[in-house]
Design a protein around this nucleic acid. Sequence first.
DNA 1: CTAACTGCAAACGTTTTGCAACTTT
DNA 2: AAAGTTGCAAAACGTTTGCAGTTAG
Lengths: 146, 146
Amino acid sequence: MNSGSDKQGLSKQEVIAKLQASGITPTQQRIVIGRQLFARPQHLSAEQVLAMVNEAGEARVSKATVYNTLNLFARRGLVREVIVDPTKVFYDSNTGEHHHMFDVETGELSDLMPGQLCVSGSPSLPGHMQVVGIDVVLRVRSAPAA
Amino acid sequence: MNSGSDKQGLSKQEVIAKLQASGITPTQQRIVIGRQLFARPQHLSAEQVLAMVNEAGEARVSKATVYNTLNLFARRGLVREVIVDPTKVFYDSNTGEHHHMFDVETGELSDLMPGQLCVSGSPSLPGHMQVVGIDVVLRVRSAPAA
DNA sequence: CTAACTGCAAACGTTTTGCAACTTT
DNA sequence: AAAGTTGCAAAACGTTTGCAGTTAG
């Protein structure tokens, strides 16, 4: 039997462990947010996280806390910020290496599994700058061009 | 002698021709904006374009017109929108195929010439969706990690 | 002359911030 | 008890929009 996931996803204890492993104080709201986020690989905006968390009804979390928490999780590497839509940031709970496909028609973001597309080449970085990450986004349009 | 560029960049006539070639009515403000943009390959935010245009003093252009024009130019393929910074859109006057490097410390965006990095693989697109473009962004940090 | 474009200022939606009240350890 | 976190409402930010007046062809 597994350690205690009641639905599909991580148990409260598992989320607490995950947060502590990243040096994050596990507060009520961070646990609730983390549980929603880490339940499965997904791309969520802050607004969506706020809605999910409050619909789940496990605790009430304010908008400000959602933003603070998502920023904190991103800084600590628990989620990946995805910048593809000028109007909002997406938070990706899949921290493994992978690229994205963005539908400019619907605003939908989805994963592109490795093999679908890959980057090669080692850019000679001018000076002492380190690579933080490589983002590859395939922009697609679902409807025929206007 | 060339067709009439007084400084370095395109002449008024050349910009007008370029706009007409894209089916864009060449108005005073579009010409001024185009001249600044097309003077050389560069990455500018709307705010920067507004500043450049008004400092150049060739005509007064409002904020709304700068936004309208940049969107129009982007739709017509005269500039490329680059989404890397959650706080603002960059407009790239280099429409050739190339990728970018974004310094998360300074917010600076620069070109990565082909060969530095390249993408391969033909993703099997589910259904009837067409590829609009592929964005590759190398995120770097100029200072040592905190 | 008509259609298209511009400017202004107000509206928008997302994200951030200031600060008092409240958890966490 | 001290440190850190939360919620609220207000502010900030880039961007869009409505509409009257102007310009292009």
